[in-house]
Nucleic acid binder design. Structure first.
Lengths: 126, 126
DNA sequence: TTGATATATTCCCCATAAGGAATATAGTTT
DNA sequence: AAACTATATTCCTTATGGGGAATATATCAA
């Protein structure tokens, strides 16, 4: 029942919002922080939880820790992420998170990896 | 984020197994008990939890309490139950639960509502 | 080296929930 | 009525996890 693990990761609002944003591609913690409007500790802890359960992978890019969904996913995970994507499309909260993130990407300060014009160092692998 | 409620219901193994069996149709507690091989208290409590969160409905048929998935389901719930159905198909535990239940239906004692030839009193609404 | 930035970790408190044993309730049968 | 069946509820203990404040670590910049 690896399936349980998936649901346990999905059953907290903050984690769900994090995963939803990650469906759009890899993100560093500060972006998640900005997108969700939640304190750093909170995000960090949930990311730890998600990593511990194999729901995200992390990679350091300079000073930033970039998180993303796992490269290889079980069928259960794939199916549920697809389902989440579908459900999230209509939800106010999820849409607002996405909007905030998008805005940040467009006009964000150059200090932030995804906002800065991509360099070799900051360009992220899909 | 009604979606969270759904995941919170799905994130326990016993509840997940209960819901999976209910995907096959309404069941009384004793059948769930037999299908899962778990103590009555445990099942009863999880059913209470599920009912409290709108994931199941209950109806009394004589001495039996028959549980089923809600007649009207939100899109989120529908999508996730579909997903569960899909994921469960390959899982050993789920298949074994189903097998036990099926066996019980075929050769079960007449004391049990689903096994007994259906009467007006025991026939269940879809 | 010093300072700043990004993130993680620790400590503490609190809420929720899981599990079992024992007991209660409701309906059925005799 | 009494006995039995199916199910729920209460009481208790324990584990897990969530949240925040403060602190630690690591990397980068000057």
């Amino acid at each position: 029942m690896r399936l349980i693990r998936v649901y346990q990761c999905l059953c907290d609002p903050t984690r769900l919002r994090i995963l939803h944003l990650l469906l759009g591609g890899p993100l560093c913690v500060c972006h998640l922080q900005a997108g969700l409007g939640e304190p750093q500790v909170k995000i960090s802890k949930h990311l730890f939880y998600l990593k511990k359960h194999g729901m995200v992978q992390m990679r350091k890019v300079g000073n930033w820790h970039v998180y993303r969904l796992p490269a290889r996913q079980t069928e259960e995970l794939k199916a549920n992420l697809r389902c989440l994507q579908e459900c999230a499309a209509k939800d106010r909260q999820f849409r607002s998170d996405m909007a905030k993130l998008k805005k940040l990407r467009q006009c964000g300060s150059a200090r932030q990896p995804m906002c800065a014009p991509a360099t070799e160092k900051t360009r992220l692998v899909a």
